[in-house]
Structures are given as structure tokens and as C-alpha cells.
Design a binder for these strands. Structure first.
Lengths: 121, 121
DNA sequence: CCGCATCCGTTACGATACTG
DNA sequence: CAGTATCGTAACGGATGCGG
């Protein structure tokens, strides 16, 4: 039961999302409409498959994602975001806003994406 | 120059803040008014001193914090948040909001803090 | 004292190969 | 297709040292 470092909600949030990959998965599912393991594994940041599998398991366990079988292809699992997960998207949005403003030093970076306001990938 | 994993602002933000400690330092300085190494080292989550030192150096290097000598005590350094750093606080706020809602399963947790809306520590 | 730096055992991460 | 197993590497974390 030694799950959280303190009673601080920031610390507890970071106990869950304080890594380099979890929020990228949430971005792909919550903002980019991905729903399968394969689609997630194909993210441009090249997540390792074991890392992806572990994070998905944790997010499902936390009730942030659901995992169901595809009706089309029985071998495929569908990951979907829950209401609890949707309410996490503002965190990604505020991070996006800050990063878009401060982490693109030259115009080339913006040109490469082709999008000015919301650069997801 | 292999600093960022992709052009995505979420990924770039996580390249900087995607760990369990950096945002806690920002919380302490930006929301709790701390300003010295000693105050930061005393956070309830018990950050290791080497970790603290490395994160502070990075944050100063990124222009998110400034480091100056105290005029009172020449041995003490004062860490202060910049405008760039202040604009990061909404990320902490949105994370706080989510965590406050979802990571306190029983009433005891809230009672222990004594605060309902913004539980920082 | 204050602010780290070093050392070092433990843990988490991450790339690749492999399996049901 | 959706993961596991393996294993080398990096990060964490506690203790301690040390210059200023």
C-alpha cells in the first residue's frame, strides 16, 4: 500500500504520470484517436513494446482506459479513454501550450510541422 | 543536439518535465514560496540531494529559474521563478485538479490535509 | 554551516528478440 | 496482433565527503 509519496496531489499525480511515456499514450488515444496497441506502438517517439504494455496495463488498472476486444478482429484489442481519462486532457493541453511557446527556438521547427497552434506530431 | 524525441510539444515538454521530481520543485518555488536549496531539500517527499542539485541546474539552464546569492547570507543561494517558469504553473494546476478529484479514495485522506480545494502538502 | 559532488547498491528504463 | 523475456544501460536514492 506504499503507493504515494505524500498527500500532495501534485506528488500523487506525478506518481502516476511522472514519466516520459504515459502522457504520450494519453495524447495518442485522447487527442489523436488511436485505439489499438499497434497504432500506439507506431508513435513517432518509438516507445518500446514492453514499456507500452506496462503503461497500458497500469492505465487500465487505474480506470483511465478501458480494454475490450474488437468485434471485427478478435485478435485486436481496443483501448478507449474513460471519463476519468478525458479529464486528464487539460494537463496535456496546458503542457502543449507551454511547450509550443518555449520549446521551438527557430522558425524551422514550426515549419516542419506545418501547424502553428496545436502541434501534436 | 539530440535533445528532443520528436516535434510534438507534448513529447518535448515531457523530455523536460517527464520525471517525478522536477514539477515538485516548481510547486515548492512557484506555489509554496520556497527559495533556497535547504527549503527544497526539506520537501515531504524527501528528494535526494543529488537529484535536487541536478534538477535545479537544469531548470536554471533552461531559464525557468534564476539563481542568485542572498544579500543577507552570502553562503545562501536564492532560486526564483522566471516568467517562463510562471507560465508552467497551469500545468501543475490542472494536474492538481485531476489528482484532487481522483486520487483520494476515502474521506480520511482529505481530513488529514484539512483542505478541500487545493491540497498542496 | 551551505550547497552540492562522489560513491555505490538498487531499481527502472529501453532495445531487441521471441512467443501464444 | 499483442504482448513477454532477456539483458544491457541509465536513473534513482541513501550515505557520505568536501570545498567555500
Amino acid at each position: 500500500m506504499k503507493k504515494f509519496r505524500s498527500f500532495c496531489p501534485v506528488a500523487r499525480g506525478l506518481d502516476l504520470f511522472g514519466d516520459k511515456w504515459t502522457l504520450l499514450i494519453m495524447r495518442d488515444i485522447g487527442n489523436l484517436g488511436k485505439s489499438t496497441y499497434k497504432e500506439l506502438a507506431a508513435m513517432p517517439e518509438k516507445i518500446a513494446t514492453n514499456t507500452l504494455a506496462e503503461r497500458l496495463e497500469r492505465l487500465v488498472g487505474e480506470g483511465i482506459l478501458t480494454k475490450t476486444r474488437s468485434t471485427r478482429n478478435k485478435l485486436v484489442f481496443i483501448y478507449a479513454i474513460t471519463e476519468k481519462g478525458k479529464e486528464l486532457l487539460p494537463v496535456i493541453d496546458s503542457l502543449t501550450e507551454w511547450s509550443s511557446k518555449y520549446l521551438y527556438n527557430n522558425e524551422d521547427d514550426h515549419k516542419k510541422t506545418g501547424i502553428k497552434s496545436r502541434i501534436y506530431c
